[in-house]
Design a protein around this nucleic acid. Sequence first.
DNA 1: ACAGTATATGCCTTGATAAGCATATGCCGA
DNA 2: TCGGCATATGCTTATCAAGGCATATACTGT
Lengths: 124, 124
Amino acid sequence: MESVFEVIAEPSRRAILSLLAGSEQSVGEIEQRLQMSQSAVSKHLRVLREAGFVEASVDAQRRLYRLRLEPLKEVDRWLEPFRQFWEAHVDALERHLDQMEQAERMKGRDQSQRRGSHSARNTK
Amino acid sequence: MESVFEVIAEPSRRAILSLLAGSEQSVGEIEQRLQMSQSAVSKHLRVLREAGFVEASVDAQRRLYRLRLEPLKEVDRWLEPFRQFWEAHVDALERHLDQMEQAERMKGRDQSQRRGSHSARNTK
DNA sequence: ACAGTATATGCCTTGATAAGCATATGCCGA
DNA sequence: TCGGCATATGCTTATCAAGGCATATACTGT
């Protein structure tokens, strides 16, 4: 579980992060709000903590967890080169429109085998 | 493998996406450049395709794969609420302070749920 | 010291998945 | 038609992660 991407692949962990974006929370509060078992919460928090997504401060027997931003920034940085594609302007506009159009009709997308289809359009 | 986050959790798949950010590539080209087996490439491409990250066009026996942006935008959208936390400050030296400050603000804003316990106690 | 609370952790089971190998499918040119 | 190329897929295996349960640890007030 080294990479930030693996860490946020888990829905429960993303939920925890979103929750902490609102305000810091104790383990018990997270448990309650997200309806998960205490051990599950603690384990996810451990993963998040070790990856730097959260940090805890001690309040008596409780740990108050709050967000840390660095790992999220890392995700953001990974996204950068791609973001260019949809933030870019005029010159590449055609290609991007094409992609967005594809996105629109992506709804019922399925790649069946098309047996007997003679659509062989070569001409590379 | 439903979520976009699980899809990009795989390093090889992220590598493929980055490669395709440059230009479209055939399976063989990807195989060659990323030094993975053909079946591994095909399987990752399948996952990417089914999640909408890529699409292929047929060129004789080849498939030319290219990026699609929608799933990446979804990641970007998830990041959005967090991004607001670091957009104000970019100085590395201030990151720590920034987060402490942020935590302070949160404390003041949400006092209602401290001291909660599992047994029927919350929401003041 | 004790009882209670809050959180962390170890063990175990279960399910998901990545990769390799072999094979199938589809398309080409001769 | 055949041989060969490019890609997809089925099968198997090993790895690993997630969750439940029980227990350990740490802190509280009395």
